[in-house]
């Protein structure tokens, strides 16, 4: 058993790229679902549209990196409006079905042969991240403490990612303390009551959808830049569902819930995966093979989601009196 490797990869997972990407996606979902009660099951599409907006602008059309970011952001906002204008009047379960269908449409279009010239089909796009790494202030080399370390590229994307997370959390903190956030939480509880008090529920839901989408889309950028590539199937419904698991794990309607949730989620996933692999390789576990370790981890995700919602819907850090899960 190589416990050092397990320890190192686990610690790296806590602050690693996946954690950053999923934390940003989950912060967005937390605004939409945790605070406003909107069941947006299409968060993957927001990440995807941003990532592809960047990738296509730079890789397909050869335009500058910053323009790619701007186009990614614009595409995200447009997607939010396209999704929101017709659907925000629908009740929760219909909204869920519409958004999940829309996200699948986006993914299928990205991977289609018909648009291969633009989106690159199922292989996606590469070669758009040079502009980002050209900004890297860290000279070449390995950075880290003891055995835990990253090269300068990973360090750069992680620093940017965590700065974005801090900014997003600060934004959520300020907003949710304000009267604006109060309206959102009230909509989660009962939108008719909010209407009867003279607030435009539609406008606030739209603001929530756009804001959550834009924060989520930062995760899309981080993913694309961190991997220096995008593929359509990354942005499948499972991304959205894992992000929901993260929100619930950390505690819905908690400012830091999604961040802690994402770190715990990936630490557990990596730790369990590595430990099981080691145990299988060392012959302690004989009823599965190393290739079966992957599925086991995600079975545990599903099981964890079920158990959390049944026994601890407020998540690890939530306050039961304030949980938001069941607002309709």
């Amino acid at each position: 058993m190589d416990w050092t490797t397990i320890f190192v990869t686990t610690v790296e997972a806590a602050i690693g790229l996946e954690t950053v990407v999923y934390a940003l996606a989950a912060i967005g979902i937390n605004i939409q679902f945790g605070y406003t009660g909107l069941l947006n099951f299409g968060q993957a599409a927001f990440l995807g549209v941003a990532a592809y907006g960047l990738a296509v602008t730079v890789a397909t059309f050869g335009l500058p990196f910053w323009l790619g970011i701007v186009i990614g952001l614009i595409a995200t906002v447009i997607l939010a409006f396209l999704l929101g204008i017709p659907t925000l009047q629908l009740r929760a379960d219909y909204l869920a079905i519409v958004t999940i269908a829309a996200a699948e449409i986006v993914r299928l279009v990205f991977r289609s042969v018909a648009f291969k010239d633009v989106f690159g089909g199922s292989d996606g796009r590469q070669g758009f991240s040079d502009g980002f790494y050209a900004l890297n202030p860290f000279p070449r080399g390995e950075y880290g403490i003891g055995p835990i370390g990253f090269n300068e590229r990973v360090l750069w994307i992680l620093v940017v990612g965590w700065i974005l997370i801090v900014l997003a959390c600060l934004l959520v903190y300020l907003l949710m303390k304000s009267p604006w956030g109060r309206v959102l939480k009230a909509i989660r509880e009962d939108e008719d009551a909010v209407r009867s008090l003279g607030k435009s529920v539609f406008s606030y839901k739209m603001q929530s959808l756009v804001l959550g989408g834009v924060i989520g889309c930062l995760g899309g950028f981080v993913y694309a830049l961190g991997n220096a590539s995008v593929q359509p199937d990354v942005f499948g419904t499972e991304l959205t569902f894992y992000a929901y698991t993260i929100v619930i794990l950390g505690g819905a309607a908690r400012v830091l819930g999604p961040v802690l949730g994402a770190a715990i989620f990936w630490v557990l996933l990596v730790f369990i995966g590595n430990t099981l692999s080691e145990l299988v390789a060392a012959g302690y576990i004989t009823f599965m093979t190393t290739t079966q370790v992957g599925p086991v981890r995600f079975m545990l995700v599903g099981l964890g989601l079920v158990l959390l919602l049944i026994f601890r819907p407020q998540g690890i850090f939530g306050d039961k009196r304030e949980i938001a899960i069941d607002a309709r």
Partner: peptide
């Protein structure tokens, strides 16, 4: 404070 930008 119910305006998004003022809320900040």
């Amino acid at each position: 404070g119910e305006n998004f930008f003022n809320a900040l």
